[in-house]
């Protein structure tokens, strides 16, 4: 019973938040345009949070995702300036993300450093690299190819459905694709089951024959890759690359996974619930902006809602024991 309360409390809260905004903003909140906007606004966070879920399944986490996102954007932009073709620059940036993730994985899984310490270190390294490569400047304007930034403005038109001048944003499609792939990976492959086994009990997983080091290494590599992908989406959306622009993604991603964990059966991270966590954060931001709530108050409210969800989950879990 208490488990069900814990699971449903956050979802109920989410439904109440949507209801509240729908009632207060009857003309603008639950409109196709606004919902499509929200999906686009959240697309980068969805990608980082989805791939953050992969490491958090093993009770690890990665603090370096924000600076990796910045670094990937900078790498691509610097290569654009060097006249690389777009596909090559993007591939190189994603490769940097993958390698950065592997480096995190080596520190955590092979050498055995705590993820907090290891990824705090790489956070600084990636951020420093981004500043160094870009010489601290924002790369924008003609240096960013129009096809690249145009992608972020494109999408699938919905005129056939009678929705004039509306489209499913390309960035949202990318984010949904990443979530779908992550969902299949975590829920429907043996690799995913191994991740959950490592998260449940690392020692037992090892004794059961799971190659824990390899599994953790791959998981960190995927998180790095996701962060780099989000960084490229970010750079396309703002049509520029700034060496610090991804910094805000990390805490929001972790908050989204935590929110998601309050809704799952045993409090374990599940990517679809992470998506609900992301939507909660984004919808609160969108609705409160439309209601003209002071931005500083908005930050306080978002923090309090995350705390409230986790407290309800924690208390009901304890009662359940």
């Amino acid at each position: 019973m208490s488990d069900r309360l814990r699971q449903s409390a956050t979802l109920l809260g989410f439904a109440l938040i949507i209801l509240f905004f729908a009632v207060r903003l009857p003309d603008t909140f639950l409109t196709a345009r606004n919902l499509l906007n929200i999906s686009q606004q959240l697309s980068m966070l969805m990608v980082v949070a989805a791939t953050m879920t992969i490491v958090m399944v093993m009770n690890d986490f990665d603090l370096s995702v924000g600076s990796m996102a910045s670094l990937a954007g900078i790498v691509a932009a610097v290569l654009f300036v060097a006249d690389w073709p777009i596909w090559a620059a993007l591939s190189a940036a994603l490769l940097v993300g993958l390698l950065g993730g592997v480096f995190n994985g080596i520190l955590v899984a092979v050498i055995g450093i705590l993820p907090f310490v290891a990824t705090l270190g790489t956070l600084t390294v990636f951020s420093g690299l981004a500043l160094y490569i870009s010489e601290g400047t924002t790369i924008f304007g003609r240096d960013i190819p129009a096809e690249f930034s145009g992608f972020a403005r494109g999408g699938i038109p919905l005129e056939a459905l009678g929705l004039e001048r509306l489209k499913i944003p390309a960035l949202s499609l990318v984010a949904f694709a990443v979530i779908a792939v992550t969902w299949v990976l975590l829920e429907h492959t043996s690799f995913g089951r191994k991740l959950y086994a490592v998260g449940g009990n690392r020692e037992a997983a090892h004794l059961a024959g799971i190659r824990v080091v390899r599994v953790r290494l791959i998981a960190f590599a995927l998180t790095g890759l996701g962060a780099a992908g989000a960084g490229l989406m970010f750079a396309a959306r703002v049509a520029s690359a700034n060496p610090t622009q991804g910094a805000g993604l990390m805490l929001d991603a972790i908050a989204a996974v935590f929110l998601g964990m309050t809704m799952t059966k045993r409090g374990e991270p599940r990517v679809l619930y992470t998506l609900v966590g992301v939507l909660m954060l984004g919808i609160i931001d969108n609705g409160l902006t439309q209601l003209r709530v002071d931005s500083f108050i908005r930050e306080i409210l978002v923090g309090l809602i995350v705390i409230a969800a986790v407290v309800v989950a924690h208390v009901s879990k304890r009662r359940g024991k």
Binding site: T28, Q40, M44, A239, G248, T289, Q290
Partner: peptide, 30 residues
Amino acid sequence: VAAVISRMEDAVTQNVDAIVIHIDPLQVTP
């Protein structure tokens, strides 16, 4: 910076009469 774009879109949804920005406009084209 990306959130500035998001909040501008929200303001458009709200149908405000005007938007004032304090940021490099090249970063918020959408």
